[in-house]
């Protein structure tokens, strides 16, 4: 917890990220980095229950300050090689956040969330693991 906060402090102090709101990643949320992108998100409801629909609220930024776009969100269980039986839809909100609606994890275990993000021509896939008990 404190580590994440410290990390956020460092990241936010660097000039390129100055305008990137990462508050979604605080506390119960998550932050994912790559060389070019940064993504902060939390789930709604905060606790993901097996078999129950949930949404993700997200923010995506580039490191060089160019506008970034969230193209797709999906999830699979890499061990079992199966995905969800549901296709999330993404809507952008006025405050620059995205909402991915309609995810369902139908089994406990490791789920790998994938986020396809884009800035200009380049698309990149970020991933994040969630272990569901």
């Amino acid at each position: 917890m404190r580590f994440v906060a410290a990390l956020l402090a460092v990241v936010l102090a660097s000039p390129a990220f100055a305008d990137c709101p990462l508050d979604l990643g605080r506390g119960t949320g998550w932050v994912v980095f790559s060389n070019h992108y940064m993504l902060a998100f939390r789930s709604d409801p905060l606790r993901i229950e097996t078999g129950e629909p949930f949404a993700l609220v997200l923010n995506v930024c580039t490191k060089n300050g160019k506008p970034a776009e969230l193209v797709a969100v999906d999830a699979q269980m890499p061990e079992h090689r199966h995905g969800m039986n549901y296709r999330p839809t993404i809507v952008g909100a006025d405050n620059g956040r995205y909402r991915a609606e309609g995810l369902v994890f139908h089994m406990p275990g490791r789920w790998e969330l994938t986020f396809d993000v884009r800035a200009g021509e380049e698309t990149e896939r970020l991933t994040h693991d969630i272990i569901l008990k």
């Binding site: 629909p53 549901y86 839809t89 609606e101 309609g102």
Partner: peptide
């Protein structure tokens, strides 16, 4: 209707 809206045939 959330599940119905998002369910995907595979």
């Amino acid at each position: 209707a959330r599940r119905t809206r998002h369910v995907q045939r595979q």
